[in-house]
Simulated assay, not measured.
Amino acid sequence: MVTGEQTAGRYCLIDMRVPPNGGPPPHRHDFEEMFTVLDGAVEFTFRGEQITARAGETVNIPANAPHFFRNSFDQPARLLCMCTPAGQDEYFLRVGDRVDGPTSPPPALTEEEQAERRHRAAELAAEYRSELLVP
């Protein structure tokens, strides 16, 4: 929605669509991240504590805090994610797959394609000041 390029790198604002069972693996990064749930619900695990955030609620993740989230529900969720400073917007563009529009379903990826995306995410993480906390 708002790129780091538009804010001179101060922040970015990302519109996230999270399908059922979707979400990132455990990770941490040296930038602040704030999520506001617009639709649905998402379970966040932050410093070992799990909370469920529902539409209208906001969760702030301080820099360097281990965390992850999962849509453990059977309905898609929509989140706004603000990162300060920016950079996560570029990471997602390099790791993910473009879709036709904001309501388009995620691409149907084969097991091999999913493994390639996970590999790419891990390979690029350090370049974007992130660390994936998975083996």
Score class of each variant (00 low, 15 high):
Gln75Asp: 15
Gly101Asn: 11
Glu123Asn: 14
Glu127Asp: 15
Phe46Glu: 12
Asn71His: 12
Asp74His: 15
Ala41Phe: 01
Glu90His: 07
Glu116Val: 11
Leu109Asp: 01
Asn64Asp: 11
Glu33Asn: 00
His119Gly: 11
Ala8Cys: 12
Arg118Ser: 12
Thr45Gln: 05
Asp39Gln: 10
Pro26Val: 03
Val134Gly: 08
Ala122Leu: 07
Glu127Arg: 07
Thr84Lys: 13
Arg117His: 08
Ala63Tyr: 06
Asp30Arg: 12
Leu132Cys: 10
Arg54Trp: 11
Arg28Glu: 15
Ala63Arg: 13
Arg54Glu: 06
Gln88Ser: 13
Cys81Pro: 03
Val95Phe: 04
Glu57Gln: 15
Pro26Ile: 08
Arg94Tyr: 02
Gly4Val: 06
Glu33Lys: 05
Glu112Val: 05
Arg54Gln: 15
Glu90Thr: 09
Gly23Val: 03
Met34Glu: 14
Asp97His: 08
Ile61Phe: 09
Ile14Gln: 02
Gly96Asn: 00
Pro102Asn: 09
Leu80Glu: 03
Asp15Phe: 04
Glu116Gln: 14
Ala65Asp: 14
Ala53Phe: 05
Glu111His: 08
Pro85Phe: 02
Arg129Asn: 14
Thr36Arg: 01
Arg98Ala: 11
Leu79Gly: 04
Ala8Ser: 15
Ala115Leu: 10
Val18His: 00
Phe73Met: 04
Thr52Met: 06
Phe35Asn: 08
Gly9Met: 04
Ser104Tyr: 01
Arg129Thr: 01
Val59Leu: 04
Gly48Tyr: 02
Leu133Asp: 01
Glu123Ala: 06
Asn21Asp: 14
Met34Cys: 12
